[in-house]
Nucleic acid binder design. Sequence first.
DNA 1: TAAGCGAGACCGACCGGTCTGTCTCGCCCC
DNA 2: GGGGCGAGACAGACCGGTCGGTCTCGCTTA
Lengths: 201, 201
Amino acid sequence: MNLKEKIIHESLKLFSLKGFLGTSIHDILEAADTSKGGFYNHFSSKEDLFFQVIDEARKIWREKNLKGLDQIEKPTGKITQLLKNYKNRYLKDADNFPGGCVFITLSAELNHQRPQLSTELEKGFVGLKGMLRRLLKQGKESGELSKAVSTDSVTEILFSGMLGASLSFGVNKSKKSLDKSINALIEYLEQLQQSDQYPFD
Amino acid sequence: MNLKEKIIHESLKLFSLKGFLGTSIHDILEAADTSKGGFYNHFSSKEDLFFQVIDEARKIWREKNLKGLDQIEKPTGKITQLLKNYKNRYLKDADNFPGGCVFITLSAELNHQRPQLSTELEKGFVGLKGMLRRLLKQGKESGELSKAVSTDSVTEILFSGMLGASLSFGVNKSKKSLDKSINALIEYLEQLQQSDQYPFD
DNA sequence: TAAGCGAGACCGACCGGTCTGTCTCGCCCC
DNA sequence: GGGGCGAGACAGACCGGTCGGTCTCGCTTA
């Protein structure tokens, strides 16, 4: 791993722990064992680094969360697998994200401080929500889910459940509690498949 | 409102927008229209201010979220009312929290940077989760909820759903989306009351 | 006149960013 | 093949600005 990759990797960890503004260039130099010269030789500014770190974080997110999904046929099965990946392979991935989901940390920090950076982060959330909604819609079309199930409502429960579980995990650091949160969402999704009398609309 | 109260009130707004570390003393002085002398005459440090701001935020949280709950008998009714209050009276309360729930903003920011401050924040989350669990337990005892319903699972869904909805609201600023999130939780809770065949355990 | 509140100059530490200097290569010409 | 040169990588002193916090002093009010 060359210096540039090392800086991005170490920054990713630091950002997940302390946020963007909370991480100083000095912190990064120390973690990557380099100097100002080494840093600014590869990045034009701290913001430049931000965007490259986010790119890398997205790659890791997909790698961790989407693993095995293409081998599953049923849309609801894909969602269940996504939730399991999210819990076991992503949130517990202390190597890359010792401070939990970096998108959530950064989003909470930058929302009202750096609109431009925040906008970049929002894209990912929109994407995740869209994926959930799409899969649920497919689940309805294929008959796994009752037509009476409200795609929007379930999307919201799953999406905010995922965000909340990560946030909650960051606060209490309890893997048991994280397991319970995500398992509850999986059970909730299973309920929707077994029963037809849900009056959601 | 005297200067001290004004500083606390303005800090509360700023903290909800930009976090604790992201808000400078200068920002606070400007918002409260005072000077260093005026500030340090009432607070011994920025951390001292933090604890007093959190105290005030807790008062407002209770005032907004618990309103009317003591006039409701059914435990599940209390939870529904809490969710409605949370959505309409608390999260949309831009006067006090223009940046959304201040506890979530601060918690995400301070988790891995100021453990002492973070611990103070965690108390509130533990309290909310405990309240939800207690009400669900009472709901089971009074027969509103089936004994087959898992208190822990439902607690997790409601709790992380509340956190996630707030976080999501912070990101997309959409009241419609917020309404959907919380309404989905309310509907979910209603389902648990109407049906007995939930195999949660 | 005494007390306390608030204004703002000031302090050292630290911020992101610049700039110069050094060291190590690969390449070219003799 | 050996000597010289230039480009790129990295080190770290340094810059102006901002941070949280201190201190002095004048004004207000009783």
